Computed example of a mutant assay.
Amino acid sequence: MLLAIDAGNTNIVFALVDDETIVARWRIATDPRRTADEYAVWLSQLLALGGRDRAVVEAVIIGTVVPRALHNLEVLASKYFGVEALVAGRGAATFGIALDVEEPHTVGADRALNAIAAHAAHHGDLIVVDFGTAATFDVVDYTGAYKGGIIAPGINLSLDALVTAAAKLPRIAIEAPASKTVIGRNTADQMHIGIYWGYIAMIEGLVARMKAEIGRPVRVIATGGLAILFEKHTQVFDSIEQDLTITGLAMLWRRTHISAATY
Rank of each mutant, 00 (worst) to 15 (best):
V17E: 14
L244F: 10
E103M: 04
A109Q: 11
L252I: 14
E74I: 09
V163S: 12
P170A: 15
N114L: 14
T30I: 10
A93M: 07
I5K: 06
I127T: 09
A188W: 00
V66A: 12
G8Q: 10
I61F: 14
G108L: 09
T181R: 02
G194F: 04
R219V: 00
Y80T: 07
P177K: 07
I174L: 15
D160L: 04
F131K: 12
A36S: 08
K147P: 01
G248A: 15
I127R: 12
V66I: 12
D100E: 13
W42L: 09
V13I: 15
T64M: 03
E241M: 11
Y146C: 08
E231G: 00
V65A: 13
N156R: 06
V17W: 14
A165G: 07
A85W: 02
K180F: 12
L226T: 10
R68F: 13
V207D: 00
Y39W: 05
A98R: 10
A134N: 13
A222Y: 03
G89L: 08
T164E: 02
N156A: 14
I28A: 12
G108M: 11
N186C: 07
R25I: 10
M191H: 01
M210C: 05
M1I: 10
T234G: 09
D18R: 15
I193G: 01
V182G: 03
A212V: 00
L252W: 13
K168Q: 12
L99S: 09
V65E: 12
E213M: 05
R52M: 14
Q190P: 01
L159A: 04
A173Y: 01
A120Q: 09
A176P: 03
I28T: 08
K211N: 02
K211F: 06
I203S: 01
L46A: 10
V107M: 08
A36F: 08
R34S: 09
I214Q: 06
G194C: 05
A135P: 01
V75R: 03
L76Y: 05
V128D: 08
E241Q: 14
R34L: 11
D130I: 14
I258S: 12
R209A: 11
A40D: 02
I240V: 11
A59D: 13
W42N: 02
L47H: 04
G108H: 09
V218W: 05
Q45M: 07
R27I: 14
V60C: 07
A212P: 01
I5L: 11
A201L: 05
L43G: 06
A173V: 01
I150F: 09
M210S: 04
M251L: 13
A85H: 03
N186D: 14
V57W: 08
G124N: 10
R34Q: 11
K211A: 02
M251P: 01
G205M: 00
D19C: 15
N9Q: 15
I150Q: 09
I28H: 06
G144R: 05
F237Q: 00
L47K: 02
